[in-house]
């Protein structure tokens, strides 16, 4: 299946705003999809789709902030650029505290919005690359035998082979062999590299 290109998902209850944003973003070559309500976004939400959300804060029904909250609850990583007609500091701060990449007030210059959308898309690319890397590490970890997994845990706790041999009640030579296999299966070039991978794999979201 071919992956769809990174898309700007515009959410605004105002028809005219959706149309003008669609034209603006198309004019700079960005794929756009528009939604008239927050609920519509949730109903068709696909976490695999790359892109960013451009989200009106005030909408009838579910507000932009509520949608952000719902997306956070399902651990969606899509970056959000909020647009608001009415400047409200607490609202802006709340949106940012909950992970919005930006919050822009109307009226704005077209170029400002495009710049911020491009930043959001870049962030999405970085996030997705990070997730991919994490998945690869986890897959490699799953290929370890239970014993190798034990050795990995002890090694990355900073324990020396001699100590690990005592912990597992095996010879030091056996630990060395397991350890070499762990390094090989994980593709680790050094102990520090191995530790970084384990930390990365342990990160939630």
């Amino acid at each position: 299946m071919k992956e769809k290109p990174a898309t700007v998902f515009v959410v605004d209850d105002d028809d005219a705003v959706r149309t003008s944003l669609r034209l603006l973003l198309k004019s700079v070559g960005l794929p756009v999809e528009t939604f008239a309500s927050a609920q519509e976004v949730l109903d068709g939400f696909d976490a695999e789709r790359a892109g960013c959300l451009v989200l009106d804060i005030r909408m009838p029904g579910m507000s932009g902030l509520e949608l952000q909250q719902r997306l956070n609850e399902i651990h969606a990583i899509v970056p959000i650029v909020f647009i608001t007609g009415h400047g409200d500091v607490p609202m802006a701060v709340e949106a940012m505290q909950h992970g919005a990449v930006d919050f822009i007030q109307k009226p704005f210059r077209d170029q400002d919005l495009i710049d911020r959308i491009n930043q959001a898309l870049e962030k999405d690319r970085d996030n997705r690359a990070g997730l991919k890397e994490r998945d690869a590490i986890r897959r490699r970890m799953q290929q370890l035998t239970p014993r190798e997994r034990e050795v990995l845990d002890l090694v990355t706790q900073g324990k020396a082979n001699k100590v690990i041999a005592g912990d597992l009640n095996v010879s030091q030579r056996t630990v060395e062999i397991h350890r070499a296999r762990v390094m090989e299966k994980m593709g680790a070039s050094s102990l520090a590299h191995l530790v970084r991978m384990v930390i990365e794999a342990d990160r939630t979201s």
Binding site: V89, Q97, D102, F103, Q105
Partner: peptide, 18 residues
């Protein structure tokens, strides 16, 4: 104002209180 608040939060402020 919103612009300053957003700039502060982007810079990594924990909060921006009026």
């Amino acid at each position: 104002d919103v612009t300053h608040a957003v700039a502060a939060m982007r810079a990594g402020a924990l909060d921006y209180i009026e």
